[in-house]
Amino acid sequence: MSTTSYAVLAKARAKYGRHLTDRDYSSIVACQSVAEVMVYLKSHTHFSSALSEVNERDVHRGRLEMLLRQYQFYEFDSLCRYDSSMSEGFSRYVVEKTEVEQIIRFLILLNSNSTEKFIFQFPAYFVKHTSLDINKLANARDYSEFLSALSGSVYYDILKIYKPDRRGMLPVSYMENKLYAYVLGNVFELIKKKAKGTERKELLQMFYTINDYTIFSKILRLKKYYNLSPEVIKTNLIPEYSDLNAKMIDRMCAAESSAEVFRIMQSKGCGRLINKIGYTYASDISPRVQYRMAKKYIHFSDNPSVVMISYMFLAETELTNVISMIEGIRYQLDKSIIQSLIIR
Rank of each mutant, 00 (worst) to 15 (best):
F73H: 00
P230S: 07
S286T: 09
L20H: 02
S242I: 07
L190W: 04
Q121I: 11
I343S: 08
S2Y: 10
F122G: 04
A254C: 10
R221F: 14
S283M: 14
L147C: 09
P304L: 02
A50H: 01
L107V: 08
T130K: 01
D334P: 03
T130Q: 07
L190Q: 04
R166D: 15
R167F: 14
K201F: 11
T98K: 10
K295G: 06
Y40N: 06
F300H: 13
S85T: 12
K223L: 06
R251I: 08
I277D: 05
P164K: 07
F90Y: 11
A138W: 04
F207A: 02
E96F: 10
S87C: 08
L41K: 02
G269S: 13
R61I: 14
C270Y: 14
V100K: 04
D334N: 13
N321K: 05
A149G: 06
L147T: 06
F118S: 05
R221C: 08
V183A: 07
E199Y: 04
I233N: 02
A246Q: 14
I161Q: 15
L107C: 07
R167D: 14
V172L: 08
E318L: 03
I249P: 00
R221N: 12
V261L: 09
T130V: 08
A10R: 07
R141I: 11
A255W: 05
I337K: 11
F262S: 04
I274N: 05
V183L: 08
A30F: 05
F122P: 01
P239L: 09
P287H: 06
E75Q: 11
S324E: 11
F106K: 03
V306F: 00
Y71I: 02
S242W: 07
G269V: 10
K15P: 00
S131K: 15
V59K: 00
E202V: 03
E145W: 06
V54Q: 10
A140H: 08
E256I: 09
Y74I: 03
I298A: 01
E101W: 05
C31A: 14
T317V: 08
T21W: 08
R263G: 09
I274D: 06
E88R: 12
R105P: 01
I158G: 07
A12H: 03
L203Q: 01
A30C: 06
I323W: 03
E53T: 13
Y208E: 10
I215E: 02
A282N: 12
M1S: 14
L333V: 06
Q339R: 15
L68P: 00
L51Q: 03
H60A: 13
D58E: 15
E240I: 11
F73S: 00
Y16C: 05
I309V: 14
Y143W: 10
R57S: 13
I337S: 11
D157A: 11
S151A: 13
L244Q: 05
N177Q: 15
I103C: 04
V37Y: 03
I108F: 08
L190P: 01
V95G: 03
L137F: 07
S173L: 15
Q70P: 03
K224V: 12
N236K: 14
I219C: 07
I158H: 09
R263A: 15
S52E: 15
R330K: 13
C80I: 01
K136C: 10
N275T: 13
A149S: 14
G197K: 09
N227V: 09
